[in-house]
Design a protein around this nucleic acid. Structure first.
Length: 144
DNA sequence: GCTGAGCGG
């Protein structure tokens, strides 16, 4: 019973997050609203986990998601100056199927007393290396 | 110690 209620809460939260109402006013001079806004993101090994508790750490995230797949990397985003958790983190799985299982297995579930949300992150494939500067001139000691 | 939507480095 309690679990069913939790699922309803989760659905309500996720529905409200979109902020899109089906009762849109259709007018000729109004911008045509999209038929539907799929919260689905493109599959990736990077997962964006939100709704985390302030006490949840990267280790808690890894252990929580490691039950559904091989977690390559897990990190909870914390503030630079306060050092406190921002309430969300990122989990990277070994494969896309593990990532999907992680979402299906942890999205809308309870972690540390809070309902967490797991979805595909927009993040970049890996640590962004600094772009190499363009070569100014040829070999030094000789230029025309 | 903590605010509770969002996307780190």
């Amino acid at each position: 019973m309690a679990m069913a209620m939790a699922v309803a809460v989760v659905r309500a939260l996720k529905a409200g997050r979109s902020g899109i109402s089906r009762f849109s006013t259709f007018s000729a001079l109004s911008p045509p609203p999209p038929a539907e806004a799929p919260p689905n993101a493109e599959p990736d090994t990077n997962l964006f986990v939100s709704g985390l508790s302030k006490r949840t750490t990267s280790e808690g995230l890894r252990e929580a998601f490691a039950k559904f797949g091989e977690v390559i990397s897990a990190k909870v985003v914390t503030d630079r100056v306060s050092g406190y958790s921002k309430g969300f983190g990122f989990v990277r799985y070994a494969t896309l199927e593990d990532a999907a299982k992680g979402i299906e297995g942890m999205d809308g579930k309870f972690l540390d007393g809070w309902v967490i949300f797991a979805e595909y992150a927009r993040s970049r494939p890996t640590t962004p290396p600094p772009p190499p500067p363009p070569p100014s001139e040829g070999p030094s000691g000789h230029q025309t």
